[in-house]
Design a protein around this nucleic acid. Structure first.
Lengths: 239, 239
DNA sequence: ACCTGAACACCGTTCAAGT
DNA sequence: ACCTGAACACCGTTCAAGT
């Protein structure tokens, strides 16, 4: 198989994204990737520093594809749209959140921070101060990553999955309603659904919490506070 | 080095937890694990089915160490304490959320589902119906996993970290306040903090959203709904 | 019953060598 | 300038062999 044009970084990243979509993060190896490009593994190192560089590259690509929200919309809507668009971009390429979570990739382009900047701006406008920004942003980011990882999990095996699914079935049948009364009642409702609508509802739940916190102003921004295992009537000074 | 007593499953799991705490999920290999036990890698297979079995085993251990909430406390407090205790148990052993996220482990003991059962019970009591349980539980789970993964990330490198930290510094200095005005303003506030208090505040934010949704009753439980990218003046079914 | 050595099929990466 | 082959230091796991 002769190749007219030589390889380049963009072609390597294209192929990496395609291979990862097929086989997941584990299946994305330098050797297999090279094979899809009709080349030996070592040839890749002429166009890419190492595997981390590839993962950083695809993360950067996916991040820069995030649509930005209308800057004139009210802040809760801006939060909602920014976070949802981030979710959508990452959900389309599950390798990226996976690689970020395992620290195999790191977001390292400034452009990728634009949606984050929008988010921070919306939160400032909502009235959160510097100390409220951090946990609030953390909540939004965690929701995105957590949702992606929990629903994306096993997406590699998902297609092989005959035996897997049967094992899950067996596990569910072993559940004793006497020991797990609530969970066993919820099992039918917890079966696989389209993850995006569920994410949207979860996000709205969180945003309604943000709205309540913003409305109550500083000092009372976090209801329901108190140390975890001790009862306390006083609420130690928040924000 | 002579050993009086032979190995057993519990000792293997102990050593695995210890090695993973030192070296992270990547550092936990069968060969290295065997070495810490003064044995060859292949000896482990007499006590454990394979590596997945080890990861399942430590996940099960950590999960069964989750303290349960007082069943007589009001439902929002029960949600808060259950989720917080889950967070704490997993935060003490970051390999576990990591292994679950990468699908290298799967929770497969019924006992591990007890906290989840408590959570579902609290949500039913709050008035969520079957269709509301799923996204609500998803939001709580996602918050826990997302928070753990985002703050745990790089915990392996964290101790090596001189060069790493310097690189982060350089990245932050490259940020142009003209292009990322909000984010650059927030940088000081976003610097590393103790993650647990931030998690608690994020959780309280979400719970206040749950309380609002529960109070508004079925049918209007999710404020701020509406399609993502279209502007809308009307807000369907707000609280 | 428990452990080991050699082997197989994989990894990422380096280095000298080819064109 | 770009690619390759051989090699190094790793993986998880199987299998026959040792005690």
């Amino acid at each position: 198989m002769t190749r007219r044009e030589p390889l380049n970084r963009e072609k390597v990243l294209d192929a990496a994204l395609a291979l990862a979509a097929e086989e997941g993060l584990k299946g994305l190896s330098m050797r297999k990737l090279a094979k899809t490009l009709g080349v030996e593994a070592m040839a890749l190192y002429n166009h890419v520093r190492n595997k981390t560089d590839i993962l950083d590259g695809i993360a950067e690509r996916v991040y820069s594809g995030i649509e930005r929200a209308d800057p004139d919309s009210p802040w809760p809507e801006r939060v909602r749209v920014t976070v949802l668009n981030t979710y959508r971009a990452l959900a389309a390429h599950p390798v990226v959140p996976m690689a970020l979570a395992t620290d195999e990739a790191n977001p390292n382009s400034l452009q990728a921070l634009l949606p984050l900047d929008d988010l921070v701006g919306a939160l400032y406008e909502a009235g959160f101060d510097d100390d409220g920004i951090r946990p609030t942003l953390g909540a939004l980011n965690s929701l995105v990553f957590g949702s992606l990882l929990l629903t994306t999990v096993g997406f590699t095996k998902a297609r092989k999955g005959e035996a897997e699914r049967e094992q899950d079935e067996r596990f569910l049948r072993r559940i004793d309603p006497a020991v797990l009364p609530n969970f066993s009642r919820a099992i039918p409702a917890l079966q696989a659904h389209d993850p995006e609508p569920d994410f949207m509802r979860a996000l709205d739940l969180l945003i309604s919490g943000l709205v309540a916190a913003a409305a109550s102003g500083p000092g009372t921004a976090w209801p329901l506070r108190g140390p975890a295992r001790r009862r306390r009537d006083r609420r130690p000074g928040s924000v």
